[in-house]
Simulated assay, not measured.
Amino acid sequence: MKLVVVSAGLSVPSSTRLLGDRLAKATAGRVAADVEVVELRELAVEIAHNFTNGFPGRKLSAAIDAVTGADGLIVVTPVFSASYSGLFKSFFDVIDPEALVGKPVLIAATGGSARHSLVLEHALRPLFAYLRAVVVPTAVYAASEDWGAEGLDGRIERAAGELAGLMAGLSGAKPAVEEDLHVVPFEEQLAALRSAG
């Protein structure tokens, strides 16, 4: 299986990347998966060019292929103006809206203080619900004071376990066969009710 981390951190080193790495390590410890990291900082120019010319550059195209071909995603953004970063949103804007349907996603964010932790619920979760991805119940937010403090490790482990469970479950699931489904048109159902009455 393939696990892809999308990190929107801008600095080097980055707390956003560090959180993504810890989540990936915890997930890969539960399910056999190759981990690939997509650093959006390195794709910023190609993302902007994609908006103006409609075509992804070589690196951006490879990143999109990695994300859309993954069995599971970990997406991590720093908080900017009480939401995800513009770079993070722009990357997911250039991906086909149908490409993430049913894909297991773990959402995470970093910020300067705990007061921004609701960004996960009011910004990230709705974005991936719109893309019809399957977002794990536990989201992980790491404020500056969380590093080295109690609680962060437990949230990482719980979220990683949920993502690993979804990845393992979906990889073993057999797709529904449309021929096995018998759909009776609504008009026929109404006609049957009228004749029975």
Rank of each mutant, 00 (worst) to 15 (best):
A8R: 03
G9S: 10
L10P: 02
P13G: 08
P13Q: 11
G20M: 09
D21S: 13
R30N: 03
A32C: 05
A33C: 15
D34K: 14
V35L: 08
E36R: 14
E36Y: 03
V37T: 14
A44W: 03
V45F: 04
N53A: 00
R58C: 00
I64N: 02
D71S: 13
L73Y: 00
V76L: 09
V76Y: 00
V79I: 11
S81D: 08
S83I: 05
Y84S: 07
F88W: 06
D93W: 04
D93S: 03
L100I: 11
L106C: 12
S113W: 07
L120R: 01
L124P: 04
F128Y: 07
V135W: 01
T138G: 01
A143N: 09
E145I: 10
W147V: 08
G148W: 12
A149T: 07
G151R: 08
L152E: 09
D153L: 11
R155V: 02
R158T: 14
A159N: 05
E162F: 11
L163E: 02
L163V: 09
A164W: 11
A168S: 14
L170A: 10
A173R: 15
E178A: 12
D180Y: 12
H182G: 01
V183M: 12
A191N: 13
S195K: 15
S195D: 14
